[in-house]
Design a protein around this nucleic acid. Structure first.
Lengths: 179, 179
DNA sequence: GGGAGTTCGTTGCAGGTGCAACTATACCCC
DNA sequence: GGGGTATAGTTGCACCTGCAACGAACTCCC
């Protein structure tokens, strides 16, 4: 504890400031630095674990699951490519190729949009819905355990609110709209 | 809780359950589902924004920055490859190539470890330290604004604790130790 | 109706990533 | 001290990603 507050165990001088060769306090307080590191670590470990389990169980990537889940929830089990790309937070080109792969599996197909000749629907096939439904319980249970299980239920709502605040504050540029 | 608690605005039936064709409540409560989505969104937007700014300002990727930051904070500005890989959460092979790239810039070099012939130190060069120090203030300020600025300072410690709980719960397999 | 400007999706390209296999070194124990 | 096992780092491979450039279709407005 350098002078005032408690410093979480280690009595070390702020390592960022040492690395910078000057006081980093004005740039990034130690609380924020710890929070940032915690976010990176939590996200990294969580997605690594979930992704591995999902892949082992079904040969499906986390990103594939997200796409199938979006389509399974959508009206008529279909979404326009752009809307789907926004929903799963990947670029349009990334989605093009992801849908290519899912189409090879027979899980998704492209349909020309009848009201806009530029658009295509990505449409979940019956087989795709079946695949999603067979995989989802196990995956959702894993999310419940690894994510939900780490936080007391009473604290979850608060955590969600904080995360949504971060998301809202950084709502600016989407992928592709680089500018 | 379908019947008692408040359901966060929308009166819609739980879309996951609709997609699954059965009640998902037993697998993943709606609170956890919202929290999970919030985490994915917050992380995605935050890293995208920070990564873009850092790249524009310095041509350095977020991963490069992490490596330089770890080395800048390390004893004698060097770490063994394995330890560094663990610290920045990438695989050993990923780190090999990342260090290759940083070495081309002259920011990092490999030194044979004198106590273990299998190991190498990744060592920050004076030029690498200089590059880090010239980039860090801007980047750390961006983290402070985009991450720290979204959360009242009083809540940050609590958020950090929750995130660390998630990280701790998922501490099992690291990259490379697949099994 | 026809040109300017915009939006939708795809493709070429240049990375970045992890896993599995490999080499070299270290450790253990008989 | 010599064989079996474990660990450190690198490389081949396959895959995933985003950006920029592109063609096609839509919109607006004269």
């Amino acid at each position: 504890m350098a002078t005032s507050g408690k410093v979480a165990g280690t009595g070390a001088l702020d390592p960022i400031s040492r690395a910078l060769g000057r006081d980093a306090g004005e740039l990034l307080g130690p609380e924020v630095a710890r929070g940032w590191l915690a976010l990176l670590t939590a996200y990294g470990r969580l997605t690594r674990a979930l992704s591995g389990e999902l892949m082992d169980a079904s040969g499906m990537s986390l990103a594939d699951f997200d796409v199938l889940a979006q389509l399974a929830q959508a009206e008529e089990h279909r979404l326009r490519m752009s809307d789907l790309a926004d929903a799963v937070l990947i670029s349009k080109s990334g989605l093009t190729r992801r849908i290519d792969r899912l189409a090879v599996n027979g899980w998704v197909l492209r349909q020309r949009c009848n009201t806009d000749g530029r658009s295509y629907w990505a449409t979940l096939t019956p087989g795709g819905l079946k695949a999603f439904r067979s995989v989802a319980p196990r995956h959702l249970a894993a999310v419940a355990e690894r994510f939900g299980g780490a936080i007391p239920a009473a604290d979850m709502e608060r955590l969600t609110r904080d995360l949504l605040k971060i998301a809202a504050k950084n709502a600016d540029r989407t992928r592709d709209e680089a500018r």
